[in-house]
Amino acid sequence: MTARMRPFAGPVTGAVALIVVAAAAMLLAGASPIAGFAALLRGALGGPHQVSETLVQTTSLLFPSLAVAFAFRAGLFNIGAEGQLVMGGLCAGLAGAALAVPGWVAIPLILFAGAAGGAAWGGVAGVLRARFGGNEVIATLMLNIIAALLANYLVVGPLHAPDATGAETSELPRSSWLPLLLPDSRLSVALLFGIALAVSLAYVFRSTAFGYALRAAGDAPEAARRAGIDLRRTALVAMALSGAIAGFGGATIVAGVLHRFNVALSPGYGFIAIAVALVGGLDPLWILVASFAFGILQSGSLSMQAYAHVPKDVVTFVEGLAILALATRRFVAPRTAGT
């Protein structure tokens, strides 16, 4: 399955395709692509503040993208990174607001709560798949919506922060905030966690027996099963770990950026992550690069809207097209005919 999903021409072609599609969409909006890109790039990379914001977006995209890729490599469609991210954020937000302990205790607990929340949510889909053979695509789609409803119910209802204006939990104590990488920015050490995770995952896939088993389950389930790889356990573990990665990402947004859980935590990172994972060819290191590229899009889109009058939603549109265009490039390589 994953071999089919790897854009065969690689990430460079992917990036070029993206730019061309984006330009076309800007023309469609009646704006000059040059002005649009200029505004986008200025907004994303025009100064230290812009760069730090882009890196914040990069971080937010990186975790769910790694999550999606992790499941995909094991042959599972995790369309539910969005819901896992939300659940992770929710658990982290609740834990963070409740914990009155020093930061060096609280922060690991908050991040763990996030990962656990995501793992539980991914794990539900994993159990359905492993135990009942239920299609994980449908399961994760449903779980996304259930997560949103649950978060909304809790945050608007019983757990609504008395001091809050929006649908959010109470603010985390300052000591529980993730340390910043740059002063006066929103960029926290979460970026470093993400890079470390990407590098570790690359190692897991390339060199470990665990990664080997996951890839075998994804690329040739029947052969893997006969080689003693337990497909049910693999499905469960892969979905839970994938969820944990996404949930951890949600926790970093809570502890590093918003400092509380808000229902508007994610503008669809979990869905965009599918595009990022594909652009990155499901390779954790390339996903790092792809997350930065998509981070530029996310953070530059507002400036593009303000200065070049291109509605920011063009970015979502382009991301959708990117998925289609990139996925289309597979299969083009000729297959040798068997007899």
Partner: peptide
């Protein structure tokens, strides 16, 4: 994958 892309495309 295509379905996910089309959903984003439609939303955007």
């Amino acid at each position: 994958v295509a379905g996910t892309g089309l959903n984003l495309l439609a939303a955007g």
